[in-house]
Design a protein around this nucleic acid. Structure first.
Lengths: 359, 359
DNA sequence: CTGAAAGCGCTTACAG
DNA sequence: CTGAAAGCGCTTACAG
């Protein structure tokens, strides 16, 4: 099974068409027998052009296959209509869905979208600087520490907006930003588990954008708050060092060993999947013995067995709204409206069930 | 649960810093007391600059917060170092992983990466044209019909490469491209099921880039070929109209009704998840009664229960290699080497088991 | 080692 | 309605 393929470096069989230079407005003007300014008027649909002239120019554009050079346009006009999104991940569900919302909104507005991945290896200042030098706006998906630092480093005079974790009481993101109420969502999910009769709820955390030496993420805060409101002392939270099922599995194994554990809230659905798997391996049926709630409502959450009770998050809506916020800075006539994204919503499925206290 | 947040449109509390214009090399030159050409030499690390002059210029750059305007650089120098990837999806595992490989390779080479989503609604020619006008290279992720059409429409004189489905015998992609051997992978997976004792294997297809009125995708071809080689008449394939678990679930329900179905190959892991779920609902245990194989080895495939036997695909490697192919066209001194991506690999897990013919 | 000129492909006033 | 000029912020020769 090792046959793989590639078109030979020399390209397809037919003789490689020499990459002749693209036509410019001067070429078009020459063919159409007008000055190049007139060509500019035509491609910008300026009203004051004689119909017959316009026709000649359009014909020339067609025959030469002219496409306006976007770089020259940007430099001369000063309008860039492009956004670069800074993110530390593109494949995790929350990031990918946010990116998708961003892309949709950008496309609808006629903006080009660039993606620049943030990595711990690359110099953050250089990365942010390079992105800023593009001339367009900057968008940061600030779900983790790395992205939060990037957001802090965006030069003041470059247009920028972000989607972030719900900020703590009284704190304001360094730039215009949107967020969902993760805190309230986690509180509600935890309260649901408590109402089901579980004596306490354990939490397996995702990484967060806040400095965990001094604080914790909004989802953890909501979980903690719900327990405290019910008068139960929150157990030590787990996780916080990774996003995927493998981390969930590792934490799940630990939790499975404790017979007192009957309810687990996970920071996302992938962690929950890992926890489910660990509980299965430990012979602890879900939801018979343990109830599990995920977070995000990723596409597969409803199709695993047991299907996952989870909190649906409208990442695409966040992305759209964040773009509107940025666009407001880029085009001064454009005023972003109130948020349009949907609030988090607890989706009840098979992985949770009422808990009857043991005799 | 409806509290959501957004920074007020006016921005953070502190008075919005007026977006003063970015400094140009002339500004830097003025502050440093040199001509702007000298500034150009410094920012391009040209050797012939007196140490003391260089120092003054660098100091001026620092105090003014100068960043070279990428647009002007591109226009003046003619080097773009940017790639726009055309894709009809960014969230499905195969697409997202390919994109990630592309991004990594682009970043390593110092290229900016743009993403342009292909949709059935937008005019394909306009979309492709707009992307081509960027001046950089074009990259297409050609896993579906829409993307394949986009690839066909890329003007001959714009640098372009693609990652595609394995082309049929003797056919060549319209542009330099890389591909994994999906056909052989599907053949091997099917043969494995046959060796396990299953009398036949059913197939739930993903959409494909080929015109299904005249042909079928490479994965389907491999599945069909394996059956025919074993002397069994291939049953009618299912699916082909969607990628996600819901489609898999619908097809799974149909298959579950047929007691003769004991082995199912799915075009990807999401479809397989849906099939698993449908079999569960129909009371047909996996792998006890039915064996299921997925495709791609998505991150969660190993964590569902039963864990999914699947074909691991190196999408990231494909993305990297495709980028090298494109770079070869953009920089004429750069010669792409032989493919470096890993061949598809069958990963045996819990969802498959030997089949003992019923008495 | 450093400066003055021309130009990348466009647009935006300004003339006529 | 259409053309000639100046300029966007840089780079690449060309001088000295």
């Amino acid at each position: 099974m090792d046959v793989t393929g590639q078109t030979p470096p020399d390209g397809p069989a037919d003789p490689a068409p020499e990459p002749r230079k693209a036509a410019s407005i001067r070429d078009v003007a020459h063919v159409a027998g007008v000055s190049y300014q007139t060509v500019s008027r035509v491609i910008n649909s300026h009203p004051n052009v004689r119909e017959e002239t316009r026709g000649r120019v359009e014909a020339a554009i067609e025959t030469l296959g002219f496409r306006r050079n976007a770089t020259a346009f940007a430099l001369a006009s000063g309008v860039t209509r492009s956004v670069t999104v800074l993110t530390s991940n593109t494949t995790l569900y929350g990031y990918a869905a946010t990116l998708q919302g961003l892309e949709e909104a950008a496309r609808a507005a006629g903006y080009a979208l660039g993606v620049k991945l943030l990595t711990p290896e690359d110099d953050l200042d250089r990365t942010v600087s390079a992105a800023a030098a593009t001339g367009g706006g900057l968008m940061v998906i600030g779900f983790d520490r790395l992205a939060a630092s990037a957001l802090d480093r965006v030069p003041e005079n470059v247009p920028c907006a972000a989607v972030v974790e719900a900020p703590s009481h009284g704190r304001t993101p360094p730039r215009p930003a949107v967020w969902a109420d993760d805190r309230e969502a986690a509180r509600a999910a935890t309260a649901h588990l408590l109402e089901l009769g579980h004596p306490t709820v354990h939490y397996v955390a995702i990484p967060t954008s806040v400095d965990t030496r001094h604080s914790e993420g909004p989802r953890a805060q909501g979980w903690r708050g719900a327990l405290e409101a019910a008068g139960v002392t929150p157990p030590e939270p787990h996780g916080g060092r990774g996003w995927d099922a493998r981390f969930g599995y590792d934490e799940g194994r630990r939790l499975a060993r404790d017979p007192g554990v009957t309810a687990i809230l996970c920071g996302n659905d992938d962690l929950a999947l890992g926890v489910l798997r660990a509980l299965h391996h430990a012979g602890r049926p879900v939801p018979g013995d343990v109830s599990v709630i995920g977070f995000d409502d990723a596409p597969h959450a409803g199709f695993v067995t047991p299907s996952l009770t989870t909190v649906r998050m409208d990442f695409q809506g966040l992305g759209r709204d964040a773009f509107a916020l940025l666009r407001g800075q880029l085009e001064n006539d454009h005023r972003p409206l109130a948020p349009t994204f949907a609030a988090p919503d607890l989706i009840l499925r098979e992985s949770t069930r009422g808990h009857a206290p043991r005799q």
